[in-house]
Design a protein around this nucleic acid. Structure first.
Lengths: 200, 200
DNA sequence: CTTAAAAATGAATGACTATTCAGATTGTTG
DNA sequence: CAACAATCTGAATAGTCATTCATTTTTAAG
């Protein structure tokens, strides 16, 4: 039967449960219950608990990358591209909150308990920013003395820290669009006030 | 006997073990072995495994806050203060790598498995940045339209993402001083190239 | 050198849960 | 409607470890 698609059902259940309890505290039986299947059924679709987490990373980040790349291709100004990336990244918290929680919390420390696993999808995601910065430098829009390896992390880190906050405690003080604009703005022109000389 | 100071010995051992295996995979017996005490001894000094982790957060972040505040007090220009903060934050990876790993990986997801625990020390740490930004705005050095709640997270996030990278895989491509300068620089004046008009 | 308190020990206990697999159920084919 | 295959089930297994506590060792006092 194709309509039930247990694989997908289990993945979605696992996202919910991992988001709620964290990977280690989540029980297989919790996931099974959430997915409305027997505990044993999970092992027909996944090798073990880690495998479920890895599948979430691979499959879900894969989808996100496709979407973001598509949105960025619509722009031709790197400055706009950064803002679009920012808006997409921040939107995730709103549109797929549970997935965002799992990626925020579990993805980062996955290296610690899954020694062999290299998360290439995640690298691919962050490298979208490198590409934008590189393009900006080629067009002489961005300073040449900006280190791309640092800048991409700075931009990503800024966005991600905001996501982390929102994931931990939703705060409607600033909207997504506003925050995306503000962060890309700071990144582009800085916080310095150019209208007033130093030693004001 | 005061010279042995088991409490401190256990904390230091726990930092090592948590850094190596992560909180959940770390066994109490691992920590005991590392600290050269019996398993049971740990429970004379801590209530349980979580309590060890919380003690690490409280005590070690406390020390860091003191140091950073002291260093920042030496400066009077907010722009310099940001760079000093950046250098301190990044230095942690080099000077206390194992502690940095634990804070990086476990602190962030602690809310997930310790529902009640609010990490006020961590908030206090990040708020050092708010204070700097606020001061910069008061002095009219920083733009007034910068949202302090976003800006402090953006700056902290940028730094922290670099730390995260270094913690995961030490990379001597850029030095700490260089990276600190670069990040505070981007934050202050942005990546835009002012010498060339747009549509270059 | 006692002796009592304090500190430390580590084997035993008790819970917990990922994973397995013998059997049940469901779907398919002729 | 067989008869077989594919899928699913969930109780049983097996291993792991945090925590306890009866006993031993160390320290301090008289």
């Amino acid at each position: 039967m194709r309509t039930s698609d247990k694989h997908q059902k289990i993945i979605q259940a696992a996202i919910k449960v991992f988001a709620r309890k964290g990977f280690f505290s989540a029980r297989i039986s919790d996931i099974a219950k959430e997915a409305r299947v027997a505990d044993g059924t999970i092992y027909l679709y996944f090798n073990n608990k880690y495998d479920i987490l890895i599948s979430i990373f691979e499959e879900e980040i894969g989808k996100i990358i496709l979407q973001v790349k598509l949105a960025i291709e619509q722009e031709d100004d790197p400055r706009q591209m950064l803002e679009v990336f920012a808006r997409h990244h921040l939107s995730l918290v709103e549109e797929k909150r549970e997935l965002a929680e799992v990626l925020q919390m579990e993805l980062r420390q996955s290296n610690k308990f899954m020694k062999e696993y290299r998360n290439t999808k995640f690298i691919e995601y962050v490298d979208i920013i490198s590409a934008i910065i590189h393009k900006g430098q080629e067009m002489k829009l961005f300073r040449a003395d900006v280190l791309p390896g640092v800048a991409k992390r700075a931009f990503f880190g800024a966005l991600d820290e905001m996501s982390r906050l929102w994931v931990l405690s939703p705060d409607p003080t600033y909207t997504i669009a506003e925050t995306a604009k503000q962060i890309s703005d700071i990144f582009l022109v800085g916080v310095i006030n150019k209208n007033t000389p130093a030693r004001a």
